[in-house]
Design a binder for these strands. Structure first.
Lengths: 168, 168
DNA sequence: CGATCTATTTATAAGAA
DNA sequence: TTTCTTATAAATAGATC
């Protein structure tokens, strides 16, 4: 997609390769998010940038976490990853281990959630249409807020926010 | 890409959703492979098909493995996935207690963050003053959004949200 | 279900700024 | 370098088989 076909082999020119990496990586992350949303499936994408900083890019569909994904992958493939053996720290308390595992999962889920809401994960470039949409939503909320001001009493405007979430 | 725009929300029609899932899943897998080859990077993609068979689709770049990918993911994010190995042994470590405490703190922080972004926390008792404030903030964001629309180009609307958070 | 066949929308490779 | 532009290659929605 672009001016001229692209050979499916490693791009040797450093500059082009980096440029392509950035573009395609963003595109891939975007499409991963779209697939998850459109089809309501769980998925995860991990991309390592070995150059220099050794960054990591990843996407994990809403309502799941890498912990869960890996767990499911293991159960389906029957492959067990054997990391983190802690031979010298065997727990006396199953309960503790369980709690640790639960907490880690919970944390993963929340982190993913935060990343998504922050927009770190899904670099959807704002299109005019998206801005229009955002504007409309804002106006919706604003309208409701103003209407509330008219009433003498109300319990909570949470309902407004939840009914017409701007940042969903 | 296709006849008509596609709303970025779950496709409700079963037939369309499945068709789309098939097409986009193949497309995504293909692009993952292309990115890995063109840019010579390590990456992995996991897609679960929860419908019926509960199939799994995945791609892992050449010269690496899911084990490695997960290992690297762990080392970068500092997450420890401890599946399959709940030694009911004996633990001793204060280390565990420490970890538990750390994780709880982390979780609480993230939960708060999520709540804030969702707007759940806020306004249980909306006073007139608070409504005024909210209104003003909404207008602020709305203004920025409209200003963005004037520009021909922009990168992401995230900046607006982050710069002028309504529900902070 | 997949495989095909367009009409359109997207993604992007090269350049340009 | 990062960003923006633009010509083109690709992906894919919807219809059909």
């Amino acid at each position: 997609m672009g001016r001229g076909r692209t050979e499916m082999k490693r791009i040797h020119n450093d500059v082009s390769r980096r440029a392509t990496f950035g573009k395609r990586r963003r595109g891939l992350l975007k499409k991963a998010g779209e697939l998850a949303v459109l089809c309501g499936v769980d998925l995860g994408l991990l991309v390592f940038d070995d150059g220099g900083a050794g960054k990591l890019f990843d996407y994990c569909s809403p309502s799941t976490s890498w912990s869960e994904l890996i767990e499911r992958y293991e159960s389906i493939t029957n492959h067990k990853f054997q990391f983190q053996f802690q031979f010298q720290g065997i727990d006396h308390d199953d309960d503790d281990q369980q709690q640790l595992a639960d907490l880690r999962r919970e944390r993963d889920r929340l982190e993913a959630s935060v990343r998504r809401q922050t927009g770190e994960d899904l670099p959807f470039a704002a299109t005019a249409a998206e801005l229009d949409d955002l504007e409309q939503r804002l106006e919706c909320v604003l309208g409701e807020v103003r209407e509330m001001k008219v009433h003498t009493s109300y319990t909570a405007h949470n309902s407004v926010l939840l009914t017409c979430p701007v940042f969903e």
